[in-house]
Design a protein around this nucleic acid. Structure first.
Lengths: 226, 226
DNA sequence: TTGGCGCGTCAAGGCGGCGTCAAGAACCGG
DNA sequence: CCGGTTCTTGACGCCGCCTTGACGCGCCAA
């Protein structure tokens, strides 16, 4: 059964969605604010998140980022704001769809079917990989050495490592890395990549001079080798 | 570069989308009716289809079904019809997103990024090809020998190999290879091709002196034989 | 038979890209 | 306001990739 996490602060919408989704044989969890949403998502691992952007405690886009830090679960955004800026921000933060209130329940259900249909086969991921003597736990956003010592990574280092780890064995182009970490206007500043890859190797690889997991493909990009 | 097929019968919309997408470095093909859309999709294998539902020759939902019969390429529907029924029908036929006209270009671009982002690594077909004792994985940009050893290719070698492999069994002319790899101003520098084909054979063929997969067609071009 | 063309092969040089170090700028918490 | 961390920018040596030239061979036509 498909598990859905519905995040909204308006009780009547929460109730309406719960009833409709339960009737369609979905397994429904609900949260009324961002903090609870992130907590529930981590503990219950839903197959889909329906997220209202107008939450009392934090910005909806921040919730998206919080989820995207460790999971690729489909996210459908509900919002009263129909502005182009809001849509672009939410979608680029990692949302899969954006529905403007007021919305038809039929339409929302169809969009739910659309995103979940595509998600099957994407497969559950293993958010814990090993690099040298270290374990990278994407879900916990932490790196532990074998001797229990924590390794600290800066935000940029995390962002970079995350992209590479999410594409195990695959080459990731320099352009793609620059785009995703520094923004679309960066595309030739490869010195950034050299700098941060060196940092990551220093912190993670057994022999930073001879990386075995964070590999350079000269002229093309970088590759994480499990 | 991401290939986009835009299907619309209104020339001004076609033109606006083509300009905007080209400016964002998308490779754009256009079609004005459903029959041409299906034909172009089959021959050019786009990474994304933007489809107007109001076509002169056939119903848009039929186009979606025609595509879904053989490909999981992401489909974004454009439509002037805002009715719930139309949205549900298109989405359930296999569309990934539904945008109502008039739409903001920024929003459409964001939705394009959203669906393509999800598509990478998901439903992609697995273009893994064998040459001699080696497996060429185009998606991962990697070559593995049967004994698990990685074979490293330079960017130019990759570029060349990719063109040949994407045209299995077909003759690719020297001019086309030079154009695509070195640029339009190169057309007679066949020594480059000799040089790099020899490299590829050395790295991939069992007996580089007697290639069985990377074949020369004297005076014309080269051919990849699966 | 002989010449020419096209292809495969080898070798050498230039140069761009990569890893590295270092220092200044920007940012954040106290 | 200050100290520490993080990010940005510049410089430099070196390795490897791209380019280029030269040579031999086989095929075809004259």
């Amino acid at each position: 059964m498909t598990r859905v996490l519905v995040v909204d602060d308006e009780p009547q919408i929460l109730r309406a969605l719960r009833i409709n989704l339960r009737a369609r044989r979905y397994d429904v969890e609900v949260a009324a604010d961002g903090a609870n949403a992130l907590r529930l998502a981590a503990s219950h691992r839903p197959d889909l998140v329906v997220l209202d952007l107008g939450l009392p405690d934090m910005d909806g886009v921040e919730v998206i980022r919080g989820l995207r830090g460790w999971t690729r679960v489909p996210i459908i955004v509900l919002s009263g704001r129909a502005g182009s800026q809001d849509k672009v921000a939410a979608l680029d933060a990692g949302a899969d769809d954006y529905v403007t209130k007021p919305f038809g329940v039929d339409e929302l259900l169809a969009r739910i079917r659309a995103v979940t249909r595509r998600a099957v086969g994407a497969g559950e991921e293993v958010p814990a990989v090993r690099i040298g003597r270290h374990t990278v736990d994407l879900a916990a956003h932490a790196v532990r050495a074998d001797d229990e010592r924590e390794v600290r990574l800066t935000p940029t280092e995390w962002h970079l490592l995350e992209i590479l780890v999410r594409n195990p064995g695959r080459l990731v182009s320099q352009r793609q890395l620059l785009h995703e970490v520094w923004g679309p206007q960066y595309q030739s500043e490869t010195n950034y990549l050299r700098q941060y890859l060196a940092q990551l190797r220093r912190k993670l690889e057994d022999d930073p001079a001879r990386p075995r997991h964070l590999l350079t493909e000269p002229g093309m990009g970088y590759r994480f080798q499990p």
